[in-house]
Simulated scan of single mutants.
Amino acid sequence: MALQPWPLVRLGDKAHPVPSLQYHLRQRGYPVDVDGDVGPKTDAAVRAFQKAKKLGVDGIVGPLTWTALVTTVRRGDTGDAVRSVQEEFQYRNLSDEEGNAPAVDGIFGPVTEAAVYDWQQLLHDNDEPAMAVDGIVGPMTWQSLISGMYAG
């Protein structure tokens, strides 16, 4: 499986990857609730972000909006973008045991870093040889997580 494309997210969408979208909007200063539902407030925040970044203002979060929205995070970082990384690993935690994935606490510590390294290694070895295995969540790692690779 090659790197999957960025998903399209719009008004009315629920569940993955909506929480990640909402965390990234919060990271960028748009105070939306992280409720997994693209309602009117999240839609308005997407449109405001698109306008601020001089993107097409259509309320649809596609490749250009995702690329402008995601923030590179690494060990030592804190905040909502880190919560998005952690949320992505919880989403893939099929055991439903919280300890099997990093806690969603917004702190990029050793547990989150180890999960990122393991994820990148998995993709590098099986799907995407261009994937850097560096523990840093940059655009390619974000795309692999947000696109839903290896989920469910």
Rank of each mutant, 00 (worst) to 15 (best):
M1H: 10
M1A: 14
M1T: 13
A2V: 04
A2Y: 03
L3S: 06
Q4I: 00
Q4K: 14
P7E: 09
R10C: 00
R10W: 02
G12N: 09
G12D: 08
H16R: 12
P17M: 07
P17E: 11
P17L: 03
P19G: 12
S20W: 03
L21P: 13
Q22S: 10
H24C: 05
L25P: 06
R26Q: 14
Q27E: 15
Q27I: 01
P31D: 15
V32P: 13
V32R: 13
D33R: 12
V34I: 15
V34G: 05
D35N: 15
V38E: 04
P40T: 12
K41A: 11
D43P: 03
A45T: 11
V46Y: 07
K51P: 02
L55M: 09
G56K: 14
G56F: 00
V57W: 03
G59W: 14
P63D: 12
L64D: 07
T67S: 14
A68R: 13
A68K: 14
V70E: 11
V70Y: 09
D77F: 00
D77M: 00
D80N: 14
D80G: 02
D80T: 00
V82N: 05
S84N: 14
S84C: 12
S84V: 05
S84Q: 12
Q86G: 08
Q86T: 06
F89G: 09
Q90H: 08
Q90I: 09
N93V: 13
L94G: 12
S95T: 15
D96L: 12
E98C: 03
E98N: 11
G99R: 09
G99P: 01
N100C: 05
N100H: 12
A101I: 04
P102S: 06
A103D: 13
A103C: 04
D105M: 05
G106N: 05
I107F: 02
F108N: 11
G109E: 13
G109C: 06
P110M: 08
T112Q: 09
T112E: 12
E113K: 14
A114Q: 15
A114P: 05
V116G: 09
V116P: 08
V116W: 06
Y117N: 01
Y117S: 00
D118R: 10
D118H: 04
Q121E: 08
L122T: 15
L122G: 15
L123E: 11
H124T: 09
D125K: 14
E128V: 15
E128R: 12
E128G: 03
P129T: 07
V133E: 01
D134F: 05
G138R: 15
P139I: 10
T141H: 10
W142T: 01
Q143R: 15
S144F: 02
L145I: 07
L145A: 01
G148N: 02
M149P: 01
M149A: 08
A151I: 00
A151Q: 00
A151D: 03
G152A: 09
